[in-house]
Protein backbone atom coordinates (compact mmCIF):
# COMPACT_ATOMS: atom_id res chain seq x y z
CA UNK A 1 0.00 0.00 0.00
CA UNK A 2 1.41 3.36 -1.06
CA UNK A 3 -0.73 6.22 0.20
CA UNK A 4 -0.44 9.74 1.62
CA UNK A 5 -1.13 8.86 5.24
CA UNK A 6 0.46 9.40 8.64
CA UNK A 7 -1.26 6.54 10.42
CA UNK A 8 -3.99 4.30 8.97
CA UNK A 9 -6.08 4.94 12.09
CA UNK A 10 -6.04 8.73 11.75
CA UNK A 11 -6.84 9.11 8.04
CA UNK A 12 -10.31 10.56 8.60
CA UNK A 13 -9.29 12.93 11.39
CA UNK A 14 -6.30 14.16 9.39
CA UNK A 15 -8.43 14.68 6.26
CA UNK A 16 -11.09 16.60 8.23
CA UNK A 17 -8.30 18.85 9.43
CA UNK A 18 -7.38 19.58 5.82
CA UNK A 19 -11.01 20.28 4.91
CA UNK A 20 -11.31 22.78 7.76
CA UNK A 21 -8.14 24.56 6.69
CA UNK A 22 -8.94 24.53 2.96
CA UNK A 23 -12.55 25.71 3.01
CA UNK A 24 -13.35 28.85 5.02
CA UNK A 25 -17.01 28.54 3.95
CA UNK A 26 -17.23 25.34 5.99
CA UNK A 27 -16.77 24.55 9.67
CA UNK A 28 -15.81 21.15 10.98
CA UNK A 29 -16.97 19.66 14.27
CA UNK A 30 -14.01 17.37 14.86
CA UNK A 31 -15.52 15.63 17.87
CA UNK A 32 -18.73 14.62 16.10
CA UNK A 33 -17.14 14.48 12.64
CA UNK A 34 -19.70 16.72 11.02
CA UNK A 35 -19.03 19.30 8.29
CA UNK A 36 -21.29 22.38 8.39
CA UNK A 37 -21.76 25.55 6.38
CA UNK A 38 -19.87 28.37 8.10
CA UNK A 39 -22.90 30.63 7.49
CA UNK A 40 -26.06 28.73 8.44
CA UNK A 41 -29.15 28.95 6.27
CA UNK A 42 -31.76 31.51 7.33
CA UNK A 43 -34.57 30.55 9.69
CA UNK A 44 -37.69 28.98 8.21
CA UNK A 45 -35.93 26.93 5.55
CA UNK A 46 -35.71 23.14 5.40
CA UNK A 47 -32.23 21.87 6.27
CA UNK A 48 -30.56 18.99 4.40
CA UNK A 49 -28.19 16.47 5.95
CA UNK A 50 -26.40 13.61 4.34
CA UNK A 51 -23.56 11.40 5.37
CA UNK A 52 -22.02 8.01 5.04
CA UNK A 53 -18.74 6.21 5.20
CA UNK A 54 -15.70 8.25 4.16
CA UNK A 55 -13.64 7.47 1.08
CA UNK A 56 -16.19 8.79 -1.46
CA UNK A 57 -14.98 12.40 -1.49
CA UNK A 58 -16.07 14.94 -2.52
CA UNK A 59 -19.33 13.23 -1.44
CA UNK A 60 -20.73 14.26 1.05
CA UNK A 61 -18.69 16.94 2.81
CA UNK A 62 -17.68 18.56 -0.48
CA UNK A 63 -21.33 19.28 -1.17
CA UNK A 64 -21.95 21.24 2.01
CA UNK A 65 -22.59 24.87 1.12
CA UNK A 66 -25.05 27.30 -0.39
CA UNK A 67 -27.49 25.53 -2.72
CA UNK A 68 -26.74 22.00 -1.49
CA UNK A 69 -26.29 20.43 1.96
CA UNK A 70 -26.37 22.07 5.38
CA UNK A 71 -24.32 19.33 7.02
CA UNK A 72 -22.55 16.07 6.22
CA UNK A 73 -21.75 13.36 8.78
CA UNK A 74 -18.52 11.49 8.10
CA UNK A 75 -18.14 7.86 9.14
CA UNK A 76 -14.91 5.88 9.19
CA UNK A 77 -13.77 4.78 5.73
CA UNK A 78 -16.63 2.77 4.21
CA UNK A 79 -18.42 2.53 7.60
CA UNK A 80 -21.67 4.35 8.31
CA UNK A 81 -21.60 7.27 10.72
CA UNK A 82 -23.50 6.75 13.97
CA UNK A 83 -26.88 8.14 15.13
CA UNK A 84 -25.36 10.46 17.73
CA UNK A 85 -23.42 12.27 14.98
CA UNK A 86 -26.55 12.57 12.87
CA UNK A 87 -28.64 13.71 15.84
CA UNK A 88 -26.09 16.40 16.69
CA UNK A 89 -26.09 17.58 13.06
CA UNK A 90 -29.90 17.53 12.94
CA UNK A 91 -30.18 19.65 16.08
CA UNK A 92 -27.56 22.08 14.82
CA UNK A 93 -28.92 22.74 11.33
CA UNK A 94 -32.64 22.74 12.13
CA UNK A 95 -33.97 26.20 11.27
CA UNK A 96 -37.48 25.44 12.44
CA UNK A 97 -38.79 24.13 9.12
CA UNK A 98 -37.74 20.50 9.47
CA UNK A 99 -34.76 18.46 8.35
CA UNK A 100 -34.35 16.04 5.46
CA UNK A 101 -31.93 13.13 5.80
CA UNK A 102 -30.53 12.03 2.43
CA UNK A 103 -29.47 8.39 2.80
CA UNK A 104 -27.76 6.07 0.35
CA UNK A 105 -29.33 2.62 0.40
CA UNK A 106 -26.79 0.63 2.35
CA UNK A 107 -28.04 -1.33 5.38
CA UNK A 108 -25.71 0.38 7.86
CA UNK A 109 -26.51 3.89 6.62
CA UNK A 110 -30.25 3.23 6.57
CA UNK A 111 -30.36 1.77 10.10
CA UNK A 112 -28.19 4.49 11.65
CA UNK A 113 -30.13 7.33 10.00
CA UNK A 114 -33.40 5.66 11.02
CA UNK A 115 -32.32 5.66 14.67
CA UNK A 116 -31.18 9.27 14.41
CA UNK A 117 -34.53 10.29 12.92
CA UNK A 118 -36.39 8.55 15.77
CA UNK A 119 -34.22 10.26 18.37
CA UNK A 120 -34.68 13.66 16.69
CA UNK A 121 -38.44 13.17 16.44
CA UNK A 122 -38.47 12.35 20.15
CA UNK A 123 -36.84 15.75 20.72
CA UNK A 124 -39.60 17.40 18.70
CA UNK A 125 -37.76 18.01 15.43
CA UNK A 126 -39.60 17.26 12.22
CA UNK A 127 -37.39 14.86 10.26
CA UNK A 128 -38.04 13.17 6.93
CA UNK A 129 -35.80 10.80 4.99
CA UNK A 130 -35.20 9.86 1.41
CA UNK A 131 -33.32 6.67 0.60
CA UNK A 132 -31.53 6.84 -2.74
CA UNK A 133 -31.43 3.51 -4.62
CA UNK A 134 -30.35 4.03 -8.22
CA UNK A 135 -27.83 1.27 -8.93
CA UNK A 136 -29.21 -0.90 -11.75
CA UNK A 137 -26.36 -3.40 -11.25
CA UNK A 138 -28.40 -4.97 -8.45
CA UNK A 139 -31.01 -6.85 -10.42
CA UNK A 140 -33.08 -8.89 -8.00
CA UNK A 141 -33.98 -6.42 -5.29
CA UNK A 142 -36.79 -8.57 -3.87
CA UNK A 143 -34.25 -10.94 -2.36
CA UNK A 144 -31.49 -8.54 -1.45
CA UNK A 145 -31.08 -5.40 0.62
CA UNK A 146 -32.25 -3.59 -2.52
CA UNK A 147 -30.55 -1.39 -5.05
CA UNK A 148 -27.60 0.53 -3.73
CA UNK A 149 -27.53 4.30 -3.56
CA UNK A 150 -24.74 5.66 -5.74
CA UNK A 151 -24.23 8.51 -8.26
CA UNK A 152 -27.78 9.83 -8.28
CA UNK A 153 -27.16 11.01 -4.70
CA UNK A 154 -25.01 13.86 -6.07
CA UNK A 155 -27.71 15.06 -8.47
CA UNK A 156 -30.39 14.72 -5.81
CA UNK A 157 -28.41 16.75 -3.28
CA UNK A 158 -27.98 19.54 -5.86
CA UNK A 159 -31.60 19.66 -6.99
CA UNK A 160 -33.18 19.30 -3.57
CA UNK A 161 -30.65 21.78 -2.18
CA UNK A 162 -31.81 24.42 -4.67
CA UNK A 163 -35.45 23.80 -3.71
CA UNK A 164 -34.66 24.26 -0.02
CA UNK A 165 -32.97 27.60 -0.77
CA UNK A 166 -36.19 28.66 -2.52
CA UNK A 167 -37.99 28.07 0.76
CA UNK A 168 -40.14 25.06 -0.19
CA UNK A 169 -41.61 23.22 2.79
CA UNK A 170 -40.55 19.78 4.01
CA UNK A 171 -43.43 17.92 2.32
CA UNK A 172 -42.60 19.53 -1.03
CA UNK A 173 -38.90 18.79 -0.54
CA UNK A 174 -39.63 15.13 0.21
CA UNK A 175 -41.85 14.83 -2.87
CA UNK A 176 -39.13 16.40 -5.00
CA UNK A 177 -36.47 14.06 -3.60
CA UNK A 178 -38.69 11.06 -4.37
CA UNK A 179 -39.23 12.38 -7.89
CA UNK A 180 -35.48 12.64 -8.52
CA UNK A 181 -34.90 9.18 -7.06
CA UNK A 182 -37.66 7.70 -9.26
CA UNK A 183 -36.29 9.23 -12.46
CA UNK A 184 -32.56 8.45 -12.24
CA UNK A 185 -30.41 5.35 -12.68
CA UNK A 186 -26.69 4.53 -12.39
CA UNK A 187 -24.22 1.81 -13.31
CA UNK A 188 -20.51 1.51 -12.54
CA UNK A 189 -17.51 -0.48 -13.66
CA UNK A 190 -14.14 -1.09 -11.97
CA UNK A 191 -10.78 -1.69 -13.61
CA UNK A 192 -9.03 -2.18 -10.26
CA UNK A 193 -9.99 -2.70 -6.63
CA UNK A 194 -9.67 0.00 -4.02
CA UNK A 195 -7.50 -0.30 -0.89
CA UNK A 196 -8.98 0.67 2.48
CA UNK A 197 -6.16 2.35 4.48
CA UNK A 198 -6.91 0.42 7.69
CA UNK A 199 -6.85 -2.89 5.79
CA UNK A 200 -3.77 -2.14 3.74
CA UNK A 201 -4.46 -4.51 0.86
CA UNK A 202 -6.90 -4.42 -2.07
CA UNK A 203 -10.52 -5.18 -1.14
CA UNK A 204 -10.86 -7.71 -3.94
CA UNK A 205 -8.61 -9.39 -6.48
CA UNK A 206 -9.15 -8.28 -10.03
CA UNK A 207 -6.68 -9.71 -12.55
CA UNK A 208 -4.85 -7.24 -14.80
CA UNK A 209 -6.94 -8.17 -17.86
CA UNK A 210 -10.35 -8.25 -16.14
CA UNK A 211 -12.95 -5.68 -15.08
CA UNK A 212 -15.87 -5.84 -12.63
CA UNK A 213 -19.10 -4.76 -14.31
CA UNK A 214 -21.68 -3.25 -11.97
CA UNK A 215 -19.30 -2.67 -9.08
CA UNK A 216 -20.55 -0.92 -5.92
CA UNK A 217 -18.80 2.11 -4.43
CA UNK A 218 -17.15 -0.03 -1.73
CA UNK A 219 -15.97 -2.64 -4.18
CA UNK A 220 -19.00 -4.89 -3.81
CA UNK A 221 -19.32 -7.41 -6.61
CA UNK A 222 -21.40 -6.44 -9.59
CA UNK A 223 -23.18 -8.31 -12.34
CA UNK A 224 -20.20 -10.01 -13.93
CA UNK A 225 -16.46 -10.06 -14.39
CA UNK A 226 -15.29 -9.89 -17.97
CA UNK A 227 -12.13 -9.33 -20.00
CA UNK A 228 -11.17 -5.71 -20.54
CA UNK A 229 -12.52 -4.16 -23.75
CA UNK A 230 -12.18 -0.93 -25.76
CA UNK A 231 -13.85 2.10 -24.15
CA UNK A 232 -16.67 2.07 -26.70
CA UNK A 233 -17.70 -1.44 -25.58
CA UNK A 234 -17.36 -0.57 -21.91
CA UNK A 235 -19.63 2.43 -22.44
CA UNK A 236 -22.26 0.07 -23.86
CA UNK A 237 -22.02 -2.09 -20.74
CA UNK A 238 -22.80 1.00 -18.67
CA UNK A 239 -25.46 2.71 -20.79
CA UNK A 240 -27.43 -0.28 -22.09
CA UNK A 241 -28.60 -1.60 -18.68
CA UNK A 242 -29.58 1.92 -17.60
CA UNK A 243 -31.67 2.51 -20.73
CA UNK A 244 -33.18 -0.98 -20.39
CA UNK A 245 -34.25 -0.26 -16.82
CA UNK A 246 -36.10 3.04 -17.24
CA UNK A 247 -37.97 4.76 -20.05
CA UNK A 248 -35.99 7.94 -20.65
CA UNK A 249 -37.94 8.62 -23.88
CA UNK A 250 -36.24 11.33 -25.88
CA UNK A 251 -35.10 13.11 -22.71
CA UNK A 252 -34.07 15.65 -21.76
CA UNK A 253 -31.61 14.15 -19.29
CA UNK A 254 -28.76 15.20 -17.03
CA UNK A 255 -25.76 12.87 -17.36
CA UNK A 256 -22.95 12.43 -14.88
CA UNK A 257 -19.83 10.57 -15.99
CA UNK A 258 -18.17 10.00 -12.65
CA UNK A 259 -14.67 8.83 -11.86
CA UNK A 260 -14.22 6.33 -9.02
CA UNK A 261 -11.04 8.00 -7.76
CA UNK A 262 -8.14 6.42 -9.63
CA UNK A 263 -9.00 7.23 -13.25
CA UNK A 264 -7.55 10.34 -14.92
CA UNK A 265 -9.89 12.98 -16.30
CA UNK A 266 -8.66 12.40 -19.86
CA UNK A 267 -10.09 8.88 -19.70
CA UNK A 268 -13.33 10.13 -18.18
CA UNK A 269 -13.77 12.59 -21.07
CA UNK A 270 -12.94 9.82 -23.52
CA UNK A 271 -15.62 7.68 -21.87
CA UNK A 272 -18.10 10.54 -21.97
CA UNK A 273 -17.62 10.83 -25.73
CA UNK A 274 -18.68 7.17 -26.03
CA UNK A 275 -21.62 7.61 -23.66
CA UNK A 276 -22.81 10.72 -25.54
CA UNK A 277 -22.65 8.80 -28.82
CA UNK A 278 -24.79 5.98 -27.41
CA UNK A 279 -27.37 8.39 -26.02
CA UNK A 280 -27.54 10.18 -29.36
CA UNK A 281 -28.09 6.84 -31.11
CA UNK A 282 -30.86 6.05 -28.61
CA UNK A 283 -32.48 9.41 -29.34
CA UNK A 284 -32.07 10.71 -25.78
CA UNK A 285 -31.30 14.42 -25.69
CA UNK A 286 -28.76 15.51 -23.12
CA UNK A 287 -29.46 18.84 -21.40
CA UNK A 288 -26.60 19.07 -18.88
CA UNK A 289 -23.42 17.10 -18.19
CA UNK A 290 -21.01 16.61 -15.30
CA UNK A 291 -17.69 14.89 -15.93
CA UNK A 292 -15.31 14.36 -13.01
CA UNK A 293 -14.78 12.74 -9.63
CA UNK A 294 -17.95 13.32 -7.58
CA UNK A 295 -18.61 10.04 -5.76
CA UNK A 296 -15.47 8.01 -5.53
CA UNK A 297 -14.31 4.73 -4.10
CA UNK A 298 -10.90 5.66 -2.69
CA UNK A 299 -8.25 4.82 -5.31
CA UNK A 300 -10.40 2.56 -7.49
CA UNK A 301 -9.88 2.89 -11.22
CA UNK A 302 -13.23 2.93 -12.91
CA UNK A 303 -16.21 5.08 -13.63
CA UNK A 304 -19.95 5.22 -13.30
CA UNK A 305 -22.69 6.72 -15.41
CA UNK A 306 -25.78 8.34 -13.90
CA UNK A 307 -28.71 9.44 -16.06
CA UNK A 308 -31.59 11.50 -14.70
CA UNK A 309 -34.68 12.34 -16.73
CA UNK A 310 -35.58 15.95 -16.09
CA UNK A 311 -38.40 18.39 -16.79
CA UNK A 312 -38.37 22.19 -16.60
CA UNK A 313 -38.71 22.08 -12.82
CA UNK A 314 -35.71 19.81 -12.27
CA UNK A 315 -33.62 21.60 -14.87
CA UNK A 316 -34.37 24.99 -13.31
CA UNK A 317 -33.31 23.69 -9.90
CA UNK A 318 -30.18 22.13 -11.42
CA UNK A 319 -29.17 25.49 -12.93
CA UNK A 320 -29.82 27.43 -9.72
CA UNK A 321 -26.74 28.93 -8.03
CA UNK A 322 -24.61 26.60 -5.96
CA UNK A 323 -21.41 27.18 -4.05
CA UNK A 324 -19.70 24.18 -2.50
CA UNK A 325 -16.14 22.83 -2.69
CA UNK A 326 -17.38 20.07 -5.03
CA UNK A 327 -19.82 21.93 -7.30
CA UNK A 328 -19.98 25.66 -7.95
CA UNK A 329 -21.83 27.67 -10.57
CA UNK A 330 -24.19 30.60 -11.06
CA UNK A 331 -22.54 32.58 -8.26
Amino acid sequence: MKKFINDPASVLADALNGIAKAHPDQTVDFKNRVIYRAAPKEAGKVALISGGGSGHEPLHGGFVGYGMLDAACAGEVFTSPTPDQMLEATNTVNRGAGVLHIVKNYTGDVLNFEMAAELAAAEGIEVASVVVNDDVAVEDSTWTAGRRGVGLTVLLEKIVGAASEEGRDLAAIVALAEKVNANGRSMGIALTSCTVPAVGKPTFDLPEDQMEVGVGIHGEPGRSRVAIEPASKIAERLVTPILADFQFGDGPVIVMLNGLGGTPLIELYLMYAEVAKLLEQAGVSVARVLVGNYITSLDMQGCSVTILKVDDELLGLWDAPVSTPGIRWGI
Partner: peptide, 15 residues
Protein backbone atom coordinates in the same frame (compact mmCIF):
# COMPACT_ATOMS: atom_id res chain seq x y z
CA UNK B 1 -23.12 0.51 21.16
CA UNK B 2 -25.21 2.76 18.93
CA UNK B 3 -22.66 5.55 19.16
CA UNK B 4 -19.50 3.48 18.87
CA UNK B 5 -20.09 0.54 16.53
CA UNK B 6 -21.39 1.99 13.25
CA UNK B 7 -22.31 -0.24 10.32
CA UNK B 8 -25.45 -2.34 10.70
CA UNK B 9 -24.46 -4.10 13.95
CA UNK B 10 -24.42 -0.85 15.95
CA UNK B 11 -28.12 -0.03 15.51
CA UNK B 12 -29.14 -3.70 15.75
CA UNK B 13 -27.28 -4.60 18.96
CA UNK B 14 -27.90 -1.10 20.28
CA UNK B 15 -31.65 -1.44 19.78
Amino acid sequence: LVSSVGGASGPLYGT
